[in-house]
Each structure stands twice: as C-alpha cells, then as structure tokens.
Amino acid sequence: MTAADDGGTTTLVVRVENKAGVLARVAGLFARRGFNIESLAVAPTDDERFSRLTIVVGVDAAPMEQVVKQLDKLVNVVDIQELNPSASVERELMMVTVRAEPEIRGQILDLVRIFQATVLNVGYDEIMVSLTGSPSRVDDFEGLLRPYGIVDVQRTGKVALPKLVKAAPDPLAP
C-alpha cells in the first residue's frame, strides 16, 4: 500500500520514553499481535526524556482500538495520539536519484520547479533531488519521475501533527 491510499491508514503519534530497546518493544508488539506497520518515523522531542514515533498503520489490517490499547500497555509508552489524515497535517521527505542524460535534464528540472523540489547533487547522467510534501504529493512526484528511470529512492515515512483550531475564541465568552 502506498501513502496515497490514506483512506486505509491511521497515523499514530506515540510519545515514548527515550530508553534503550523501546523501538524493539513497539515493533515487537506489532509483530506479536499481528498488526502491520506501513511506515515508521522516530525522532527526538524537545524534551530529551522522550522520543516521538509516528507510525502509519493499515486500518484494515488491525482493529485500531486494540492496537492503541496494547501499545498503551507498554510501560515506556507515555501517550498516544490517533491522527486521522483529514484532521492532521502530514509531511514526508523523499530523496531520489534519477537518470538524467544531458539532453533530458531540462525536463526533469521542469518537474523540480513545478513541485518546488530541490536539486541536491548532479552527476554527468544522473541527478539527485529532494521533495518535502504531503505523502500524496510525494507520490505524484515520484510517479512523474519514474519513466525517466529512478536509480535510488529513500522516503522517510510520514510525520504528522494535528490541524490547528481555525475559529477564533468568542471574545465575549468568559
């Protein structure tokens, strides 16, 4: 499944204690309970005691309530936020190296411009670019580059934060 099938996935943002073996505990729990991880990103938080895991789980593959409750039982898991794609802002980073003989390099640079991607490195017949965007935009970009010949691609898996409240508070409210 690709990130474009967002309807079929849920994103869990899991705050864990920053301790040895915590990732193994989380990954082991998914394996043992037969839940599938679509993607996983790990990063430190502003509080060095904790790390944040962003886990994309296929919702068809697992009863989400069980996933969350079993995760929550891990002693090192501090809290879990379930992020529905429509209620969150999601980003993913892709780095990709594409075939780019001098005569078609211009076409690829066109795509880079349209997607506001970044050129990272250029070789005599290849070019390396990066794009940060919503998972579906990254999918689109990857799809458009594919016919030129993708030599190497790395995607981080998505990270997400909940969307912010739009309506300003009622100034007359107490």
Partner: peptide
Amino acid sequence: TTGITMSVTKHNYL
C-alpha cells in the same frame, strides 16, 4: 535475555 523475554513479561529491564 531482555530480547527473548520482551513478549512474555509485563516489563523488563537491563
């Protein structure tokens, strides 16, 4: 030991 027993303990420590 902690790896082996991870899934059969409530928690474990090294």
